[in-house]
């Protein structure tokens, strides 16, 4: 039984590490700032969830588990607020997103209509 739990938490920790490294590589492979936010949010959500669940399996039913879950909740509450603030600030100060061609005109119209 204990070995099953160990193997399971091994798998969770490894999957979390893999996801984190993928997100970090996405930080380099994605073309512009707005897409990089998506790569960073991979590491903030599922990577954190997998690593914390791997640790929870090791801790068992103790106060440590409660603390781990609180850490995860803090991360999940703060990370969308931080990325939203970041993207909104970049958008307002005129950092142009790289868009596929068909979408470009639509956004311009949208901006004109929202300003008028």
């Amino acid at each position: 039984m204990e070995q099953v739990v160990d193997i399971l938490s091994w798998l969770l920790l490894l999957a979390g590490s893999f996801l984190g490294i993928s997100g970090a590589i996405g930080l380099f492979r994605f073309p512009d700032f707005y897409s990089r936010v998506h790569a960073a949010s991979v590491t903030d959500t599922l990577c954190a969830l997998l690593i914390i669940s791997g640790l929870v399996l090791q801790a068992g039913f103790t106060l440590i588990t409660v603390k781990l879950i609180i850490v995860l909740l803090f991360l999940w509450y703060t990370s969308p607020v931080a990325s939203h603030a970041l993207v909104k600030a970049a958008h307002y100060h005129g950092l142009k997103p790289l868009l596929s061609d068909s979408n470009e005109d639509e956004v311009k119209e949208e901006e004109v209509s929202s300003k008028s």
Binding site: G20, F33, A40, D44, A89
Partner: peptide, 30 residues
């Protein structure tokens, strides 16, 4: 851009949180 830098620093910070948690288990001091 400066926003790329802030994004990277934010990611560095959230990974530090996970790192401290894992280190606590590694050192046996939760």
């Amino acid at each position: 851009s400066v926003y790329d830098r802030i994004l990277a620093v934010n990611m560095f910070g959230t990974k530090t949180v996970l790192f401290i948690a894992v280190l606590g288990f590694f050192a046996g001091r939760p």
